[in-house]
């Protein structure tokens, strides 16, 4: 028997996830390329309009590299991603300008990160408190109201929530601005009032998604014998909730938060479009509507990487919180 050096389980888990992730992301990038490059739809035509002469279209296509065979363009795209060369915006190129995608996506990425971070920072405590309140009164009026309200809210498309908010808080009351545009060179935090409605929209939908999962976890923990034990020993209810219930419901709660974070991806894209917020989701939608192939590919790949990172981080957090999983993780 040869004694092989053993990595700790957590490290093995991480290595396995990184290897699997690299493979999955490569396939995802391929999918992104296939969807945007191989399917019909020609940016040269889209930018130049229907009246463009065939010669003009041909020259723009050459500028864009569209006359190269697909496999060459695919290798260029993947190679570029690996070496950090994100290429140039196709829409700008078709108009004769060179605009590196890397320069275009930086600020929107930061803006979106700010929006998502604010939403998440408000969501986590709000969701924990609401779920705790509902779970400690299972079947009561408060619980039924909260559960019913979140089920109904979960069914609302985010653009509808945003539209209703705008019609109430801008058109009827005129308290809040309807758009959350950020001027050049400023950050979203310079105008906090404009962020209220986008953040509220996202918050409504996050709580609607997360509440039920966290509540279910808390209800389960509340039924455990050690909670009865603590209560019978006269531990104050607040302490029971904080020390016994919260700690043990945290692992499923983190999974619920990961679910919400995944969900934020779709929500953010729509909400940014509604409020004209200069984030990465809005940029993606605008890029698609002008057929900007390169920019769309890059943003989609960046989003896939972030999505994967969030999933992996959530799994790691759960493993940290549930000691039992630390040794099982690598199996």
């Amino acid at each position: 028997m040869t004694a092989r050096p053993q990595l700790p389980p957590l490290a093995r888990f991480l290595l396995a996830r990184l290897a699997g992730g690299a493979f999955t992301l490569l396939l995802a990038a391929t999918l992104v390329f296939l969807a945007t490059n191989v399917l019909p739809g020609d940016i040269a035509h889209a930018v130049l309009g229907a009246n463009a002469t065939p010669e003009l279209v041909a020259s723009v296509r050459a500028d864009l590299g569209l006359d190269e065979p697909p496999h060459r363009r695919y290798l260029d795209f993947i190679g570029g991603l690996l070496t950090g060369d994100l290429g140039n915006s196709s829409a700008a190129l078709a108009q004769g300008n060179v605009l590196p995608v890397a320069d275009v996506i930086g600020t929107p990425l930061r803006n979106t990160a700010v929006l998502a971070a604010i939403t998440f920072a408000l969501f986590v405590p709000l969701c924990l408190v609401l779920a705790g309140v509902a779970a400690s009164r299972v079947g009561g009026t408060v619980d039924r109201l909260l559960s019913g309200g979140t089920i109904a809210a979960a069914a609302f498309p985010e653009f509808l929530v945003a539209t209703v908010l705008i019609s109430v808080f801008f058109d009827a009351l005129d308290w809040l601005p309807p758009l959350a545009a950020v001027p050049e060179g400023r950050t979203p935090l310079d105008d906090p009032l404009a962020l209220v409605m986008p953040v509220t929209t996202l918050l409504v939908l996050c709580v609607a998604t997360g509440f039920r999962l966290v509540r279910a976890a808390a209800v389960e923990v509340l039924a455990e014998p050690y909670v009865d034990w603590a209560r019978l020993n006269g531990v104050p209810e607040a302490t029971v909730l904080r020390r016994y219930v919260l700690r043990n419901a945290l692992a499923p709660a983190v999974q619920a938060f990961a679910e919400v974070a995944r969900y934020l991806f779709g929500g953010v894209i729509v909400v940014e479009a509604v409020f004209a917020f200069p984030g990465i989701g809005g940029l993606l939608v605008r890029g698609i509507s002008v057929n900007d192939v390169q920019q769309t590919c890059v943003i989609a790949t960046v989003l896939a990487v972030l999505y994967w990172a969030i999933n992996t981080l959530a799994d790691l957090a759960v493993i940290r919180l549930v000691p039992r999983l630390r040794t099982e993780a690598s199996r």
């Binding site: 999918l31 779709g266 729509v270 896939a304």
Partner: peptide, 8 residues
Amino acid sequence: LLALPGLL
């Protein structure tokens, strides 16, 4: 397919 957000 699950590696990409649905809306994306």
